[in-house]
């Protein structure tokens, strides 16, 4: 409990105000089931990587044998899926950096730059999620931390692929290697992992998420792969930094006015709120808290 309050206090050392323009945003609630939430987050990341042309869906009819290392074989929301996403987005980051060095057209350079940032976000968030699963492994299945994953072994991989998809490829697309076949739902690791299909996910036991883990996942889900158009970071020591993206500069004047208005009002209200919260949490984390909870 004392660690939790202290973490809160350190979170409050900086206030970050982000304004995001979400295309056609409709009223959709965040999924209550955390497993579903992780799956949806992974789906958002997968769709973005496919849109950028960096990877291919295993259901893409145009896959050839040459695409073997580009196929997203994990279609779920667990450690293996996020590991694949981290790997592919990392490759994407390097590719964007190479392209940016060669590009001279400012408009194209902007597009590459924004894609580079989104891919970096996918990579960072995927590693954060992998970290959460590693903690679950440590607590719930410590033996698995030192063992290698059987599905990574080429000889044993056949037991872990989606049989239906495998049969389809074997009869219809004989030329495709096994590395183009997606993996099946991984029920073996359901205790600490979430590489499960929808059916198994709903019946699996709840994962023991801590508040700061949930905060990270919810924030990743909320922001998804949308671009932050305005960002203001206020540090407790008094530094204020504002970031304005080229996307914002290129918007119509009226839309710019709306966005800047929302952002400014948000800064005003949240700094007031921050002040109160900061004082309260510092008091809690300080003398008062120790007297109540740490007294022996």
């Amino acid at each position: 409990m004392s660690d939790f309050i202290k973490n809160l206090a350190s979170d409050l050392l900086r206030l970050e105000i982000n304004t995001i323009v979400k295309q056609n945003m409709s009223a959709e609630k965040i999924p209550g089931n955390k497993r579903v939430l992780l799956r949806k987050l992974a789906d958002i990341y997968r769709e973005t990587l496919i849109d950028y042309g960096l990877v291919k869906s295993p259901n893409d009819p145009n896959i050839t044998a040459e695409d073997a290392d580009k196929v997203l074989r994990w279609q779920f929301g667990g450690e293996f899926s996020f590991k694949e996403l981290a790997l592919q987005s990392g490759r994407g980051v390097k590719l964007m950096e190479e392209l940016m060095q060669k590009e001279t057209d400012p408009a194209k350079l902007n597009t590459l730059n924004s894609r580079h940032k989104i891919l970096q976000r996918i990579s960072n968030q995927s590693y954060n999620v992998i970290g959460i699963f590693k903690l679950f492994r440590r607590d719930l299945a410590p033996d698995t931390l030192t063992q290698s994953n059987e599905h990574e072994d080429e000889d044993k991989q056949i037991y872990y692929v989606d049989k239906e998809h495998f049969n389809y490829l074997r009869y219809q697309r004989c030329e495709l290697p096994l590395s183009c076949v997606p993996f099946r739902s991984h029920q073996e690791t359901a205790l600490w992992n979430n590489d499960l299909d929808w059916g198994h996910m709903n019946s699996a036991i709840e994962l023991p998420f801590l508040p700061d883990m949930l905060g990270m996942i919810y924030k990743a889900y909320e922001i998804g792969t949308e671009q932050i158009v305005l960002q203001t970071v206020i540090q407790v020591e008094g530094d204020v930094t504002s970031y304005i993206t080229p996307q914002y500069i290129n918007m119509p004047e009226q839309i710019k006015e709306i966005i800047m208005g929302v952002h400014n009002r948000s800064i005003n209200t949240s700094t007031q709120f921050w002040n109160t919260l900061f004082t309260t949490v510092i008091n809690l984390a300080g003398k008062s808290f120790n007297q109540i909870f740490s007294k022996k």
Partner: peptide, 30 residues
Amino acid sequence: FVLRTVIGFGDVINFIPNPAQEQYDPADWH
């Protein structure tokens, strides 16, 4: 459309809905 603000410890995220620009007149939308 939904205008949304998520307030957390140390961060505030504003989500501004943006309908496809070609569908609406920006002045009217504004």
